Amino acid sequence: MSKTVNLIKLSVGTESVEGLAEWHASKRAQTPDGLPRHVTRMWPKRETEILNGGSIYWVIKGSIQCRQVIKRLDEVIGSDGIRRCAIVLEPELIRTQSSLKRPFQGWRYLTPQDAPMDLPEGREAEEALPVELNQALAEIGVL
């Protein structure tokens, strides 16, 4: 039986979950069949595990705030002739418990055990804590 692994990625230039949703609604960020995608240079080596129910967890303003289920990986050849990977996503942004994350480049693997939990039903519309407060709570072991 194949295990599941997630990806974690910084949403560079995004100020909020709503901003990420707006970007995904733009034609530039979509596949020809209208699904949101993120194009990256590297093809994940753990493709089978990702496609076994994995999600991409988005880091926005220093903390993981939401995730999207990964639907498939598409090959994209850029105008420069270089092969890239389009991580094709389900449109729904699922809010998660806020979890601080230091900046990093590219994407990383994230095990299900290390992934923040989804917010309970009815709390999806809550705004994330300010980064400074979130960091202070994490330092004292509350988060």
Rank of each mutant, 00 (worst) to 15 (best):
T4I: 10
V5A: 11
N6G: 05
N6K: 05
S11K: 02
S11I: 02
V12F: 09
V12K: 04
V12T: 12
G13E: 03
G13H: 00
E18N: 10
G19F: 04
A21F: 03
A21S: 11
E22S: 11
W23F: 15
W23N: 14
A25G: 08
K27W: 13
R28L: 15
R28T: 13
R28D: 05
Q30Y: 06
Q30V: 12
D33M: 11
G34E: 02
G34S: 08
L35A: 11
P36A: 04
R37A: 05
H38K: 12
R41L: 15
R41W: 09
M42T: 13
M42A: 15
K45A: 14
K45H: 14
K45L: 12
T48F: 10
I50S: 05
N52Q: 05
G54Y: 00
G54D: 01
G54L: 02
I56S: 02
Y57G: 07
K61T: 07
G62P: 05
S63T: 08
Q65D: 04
C66P: 02
C66F: 04
R67S: 09
V69I: 13
I70P: 12
K71P: 08
D74P: 03
D74S: 04
E75G: 00
V76F: 05
V76K: 00
V76T: 02
S79G: 09
S79C: 08
D80Q: 01
G81Y: 00
G81Q: 00
I82S: 04
I82E: 03
V88P: 09
V88A: 06
P91H: 03
E92F: 05
E92G: 01
L93C: 02
L93Y: 09
I94C: 02
I94K: 11
T96D: 05
Q97N: 12
S99G: 10
L100F: 10
L100E: 11
R102E: 14
R102T: 14
R102S: 15
P103R: 03
P103I: 02
P103H: 06
F104E: 01
F104Q: 03
W107K: 05
W107Q: 02
Y109L: 10
T111M: 13
P112H: 00
P112R: 00
Q113A: 15
Q113V: 14
A115H: 01
A115R: 00
M117R: 15
D118G: 08
P120H: 07
A125E: 14
A125F: 06
E132L: 11
L133G: 06
N134A: 15
Q135G: 10
A136L: 14
I140M: 09
I140T: 14
